[in-house]
Design a protein around this nucleic acid. Structure first.
Length: 171
DNA sequence: CCAGACGTTGTT
DNA sequence: GTCTGG
DNA sequence: CCAGACGTTGTT
DNA sequence: GTCTGG
């Protein structure tokens, strides 16, 4: 679940909906109907110093702190973490100390019945309100150049009654 | 998650 | 960092 | 003990 | 088939 999602709220609306105290200055389109892994996206986390909620930009696809080389992640996917496993392994540290909220309006799922005819379906909250995926984030220092990379993952769980197939409003 | 690329030599 | 397999 | 992995989805 | 970029 959740390899791609969409966002209808701008920074202002996100800040209001999630009671954000500090909004970092980065450009953000008022909507994005194709939020893809490996791109920079807004997330909400506790500020390191004040503990207050801040809206910042991180890259989707968690690179664990202990990663020695990005090549180690080749062939693995860290865009999602199962709720059942986040207390162990790579996720343990982020789960303890680095949780976040990922503002969104809904997400996509694809049918694979016919491989030649993949079809996307969109889901959002039945009440149409902004939603926040539960997420984890981490910071990784690139040993090559010493730069820091901050990333996040979205926690997945079973299908439930909160989500419904999107009824797109016409104009 | 999907879509699209996936190579080399040697030239300007 | 932490867990598993050997 | 050390070495090496550490993931997800969805399909068969 | 598998990897990368978005």
């Amino acid at each position: 679940m959740c390899g791609r999602y969409f966002r209808r709220s701008d920074k202002q609306k996100i800040a209001e909906a999630f009671h954000v105290k500090q909004v970092v200055d980065f450009p953000l389109p008022p909507w994005d109907y194709n939020v893809a892994p490996q791109t920079m996206q807004p997330i909400i986390r506790a500020n390191r110093d004040t503990g207050e909620r801040e809206l910042v930009q991180l890259r989707w696809g968690l690179v664990p702190f202990s990663t020695k080389s990005l090549a180690d992640l080749k062939g693995k996917s860290t865009i999602n973490a199962r709720a059942e496993t986040i207390t162990r392994g790579w996720w343990a540290q982020p789960f303890k100390k680095r949780r976040c909220l990922v503002p969104a309006s809904g997400f996509y799922e694809w049918t694979h019945d016919d491989p030649k005819n993949k079809r996307p379906f969109a889901f959002d909250l039945a009440n149409g309100k902004p939603m926040g995926f539960a997420g984890l984030w981490d910071a990784w220092k690139n040993p090559t150049d010493g730069s820091w990379l901050q990333t996040y993952t979205i926690i997945t769980t079973d299908a439930n009654e909160l989500m419904t197939i999107v009824k797109w409003n016409k104009a």
